[in-house]
Design a protein around this nucleic acid. Sequence first.
DNA 1: ACGACACTTCGGCCAGCACTGAAGTGTCGT
DNA 2: ACGACACTTCAGTGCTGGCCGAAGTGTCGT
Lengths: 264, 264
Amino acid sequence: MAGDGDVDMAVVGKLLADRGRCRILLALADGRALPASVLASEAGVRASTASGHLRKLAERGLIEVLPTGRYRYYRLRGPEVARLVEVIGRLAPAQPVRSLRAGTRAQALRLARRCYDHIGGRLGVAVTDALRERGLIEGPDGTPDLAAVRGDRIAGGVSDEADYSITTQGHRELPAMGVMLPPALGAVRCCIDWTEQRHHIAGPLGTAVLTGFESAGWVTLAPTHRALRVNERGISGLRDHFGIAWPPAATTRTREQPCHRKGQ
Amino acid sequence: MAGDGDVDMAVVGKLLADRGRCRILLALADGRALPASVLASEAGVRASTASGHLRKLAERGLIEVLPTGRYRYYRLRGPEVARLVEVIGRLAPAQPVRSLRAGTRAQALRLARRCYDHIGGRLGVAVTDALRERGLIEGPDGTPDLAAVRGDRIAGGVSDEADYSITTQGHRELPAMGVMLPPALGAVRCCIDWTEQRHHIAGPLGTAVLTGFESAGWVTLAPTHRALRVNERGISGLRDHFGIAWPPAATTRTREQPCHRKGQ
DNA sequence: ACGACACTTCGGCCAGCACTGAAGTGTCGT
DNA sequence: ACGACACTTCAGTGCTGGCCGAAGTGTCGT
């Protein structure tokens, strides 16, 4: 009687129940394709174990494989998987930082990272803020950043997504700023950054911004992980076109995981 | 070195790795609060087992408890959890139907169900179609239903969400149709129905439509599960105001799970 | 042709966890 | 005050599944 004919979420849940597999998905969350050996070291397990993980993930359609010579490159299978990673990330606690390297790496990720097809971290939020301040995009009825206003906890009821839209001014000025707008572009999807707890642009506009930045040579993806590095040209570009001072002043201390305190 | 300081998705994944717990979440997916005993039978386990599940889910902030006398009502904690259920549901396969009761129940769910704060199933899609055909909402650059056009598989690259917006005509006519528009309403979030593989309205407008239907007494929630039943008044209301013939002609056969065929 | 390399499959080991019945706590009806 | 009821905690049991090393397959460099 119970749950028959319903959807069996547990088969996907089991895939997400292992730390190693989650690390693999997280490593792929920037949209790149990575070989099995890299994913094994990313997951912190031997090649044989990682191979089993990858097989299971591929069987369920969460990732796909691109065989290339003796390497086998894996990548996320479609944007819905990236969304799944994002949504779970918002509900999950942070892992404790156990080494200096991990600390600097975590900080780099907090600063700027690639989320499948758009920019996350402080840079993503800063760009979103800049676009709004300059009137290129606007929220529903022109409200400021909802999440920032409320400053809520994750479980506390922050509207999970807000829908901004591009203003006529945005349509006019954005192409000049290196952001090529795709022809069919209605509203702007925004999701909440799990490090910043603020809205940042995603969706088609987010993709356009990221590709614009990349083709202008402003940002480059770190070789081993999904952190984005802003180079000299990017720093001046952000300043001149967006009014963003980068890197940001280190006013915000490394804010620890704001999530669920245990036991009610 | 691996994954430190990153987000630990596995702790959430472990919660989703059990069929019983998933059934609990699914039972709560309509936004209601249910007592532990009901959730136990829904999950197909003894009360003691269910109690353990509920404790774990509550500890991680996925659900919250409302103690009322000797009953303890549980409900999802916030819309992000409902989103998580939706997102996973789209990637998960259907459970096999093992009984006649389960079959009719599954069919009722496919027909119309409540998804936390909006309508899903064929009814949700039908309403969305009706609103678009009558010019009350429109997609980016007025495209028809993207998912319907492509007819794609889940993993095949259907845009996971599209953003529609309300037309001026919609702002004028919707209130007369019993749909009270909230003041701040920019774009319309749409998500893809996991039974219909088509867009249906969610977000604020979805909530407004559902509450409009409910307060007009058109639909009622089934007592034991999240299926929505359309009564006489609802049938005529849907016909007169939306041009929807309900119940729909049974042209579309019970389409089986369209998901991942195993092994590439 | 040879070894080095990337990756997979297989067998065995061990930990974690879902499940239950029984016992305990708090609440409701009479 | 008493039993019925909703729910929780606890101790014991059994299975699922992650992990590794060793061995096997296919690919690349020289």
